Simulated scan of single mutants.
Amino acid sequence: MPAFLAERLWTAVLAGDERAAAAVVRQALDDGADPEAVLLDGIARVQGRVGEEWAGNRITVAQEHAATAINERAVAVVAEHPAAAIDPSLGRVLVACVDGEWHGLPARLVAEVLKLRGWHVDYLGAHVPTPHLVAHIHRTGPDVVALSGSLPTRLPTAHATITACQAAGTPVLVGGAAFGPDGEYARLLGADAWAPDARTAADRLERHPLPRPQPDHQPIDDLPHLADQEYTMVARTRPQLVRTVFTGLENDYPAMRGYDETQRERTAEDLSHIVEFLGASLYTGDEELFSRFMLWTAGVLEARGVPARSLPPALDILGRELKDFPRATGILHCATKRLTSTPISVFGGTE
């Protein structure tokens, strides 16, 4: 049933037909489909495909946004269906996205799955400022905070949020692509637990409730490698670095001189993301984080007809600008080596 449901839902989502998508989900539930399976094996699977189609340049940004909105409506259909009416019998969980994180659907899926498992859930949505989150903790006293993040560039903020929640006496479970393929950044930042997906998060909380931090709990306030101030410098001077690299590319990469205004804007956006991810790599002390992002970016550019060979010159200019910062230049050198030695596919990765 879930695979068949996912195909029918995908057809409706791709057509931008919200009513049809809602009808597909509602009918599946009326026919006895498990609500959790509809959420995770149906809607979540379709949303993953939406991301793949965007990265492969097979749908537009507008279509991706419309598809996400339709999937959010499909989640609401599940939540409103009688089959999902479960009386809370467990504890209370606060589910939220990291401040600056606008990808709210993964967190919403976690919230709905936890409700189906019998938890009382406070879902705060996307882009929740840390002070607001902590204020809600003090007001409601949840047993755990489930924190979602999709982008590694939000890890410094996630670190501050984890620390603040624990200081308020509440353990933190984190999830989402931001925390690394195996949750390595969750451990680095001192989270109490990590889960790769909603089902695993619910299972984890059912099997082993997270103990509250002890009064003498010492959160990880600083990471030793940040003492060199390289992360701080890159984060604070990002606009200047972007302008410098952009100007350098205009001088060194003749193809840019023929770019129209839209292409120039997209190039500036790409450069801004590159500097942001360099900052995330410096913050975590993991050069592989930046290399993974650059390989993904190369695949996305190739899918859009932009040669990935435009990336190494940008990294070279950025490296020259950061020549006095050994960790940054090492990260850039590693990424350049990966880009020039790895065959790039036309969709977000390597061959």
Rank of each mutant, 00 (worst) to 15 (best):
L40E: 10
T140S: 15
G183Q: 04
E230N: 01
L278R: 06
P129M: 00
P88Y: 12
R199A: 10
L226N: 08
T60I: 09
W54C: 00
A298M: 05
E184M: 03
L205K: 08
M256N: 13
R204P: 02
S345L: 11
V13P: 03
A303K: 00
P343N: 05
F293A: 03
E36R: 15
T157G: 12
K337T: 14
D286R: 08
F293E: 07
T163M: 11
V245R: 04
D34A: 12
G285Q: 00
W10Y: 14
E184N: 06
V38M: 00
F347Y: 14
I162H: 04
A12S: 02
L311I: 12
P142R: 07
H273R: 14
L322H: 08
D286A: 06
D87A: 14
A111L: 04
G279A: 02
A191P: 05
D222L: 08
A69P: 07
P152R: 05
L116Y: 07
G91L: 02
G299C: 10
V78F: 07
A308I: 05
R19T: 13
C97P: 09
Q229W: 13
P129S: 02
A33T: 08
P181L: 12
L116V: 11
L151N: 09
A22W: 05
E321N: 13
A84Q: 01
Y259V: 00
L114R: 09
V172M: 00
G104Q: 09
D222I: 11
E276G: 08
T130M: 03
H65Y: 14
A195D: 07
P213I: 06
Y231I: 05
I331L: 07
E269C: 13
V145D: 00
A23L: 12
V77F: 03
A268E: 10
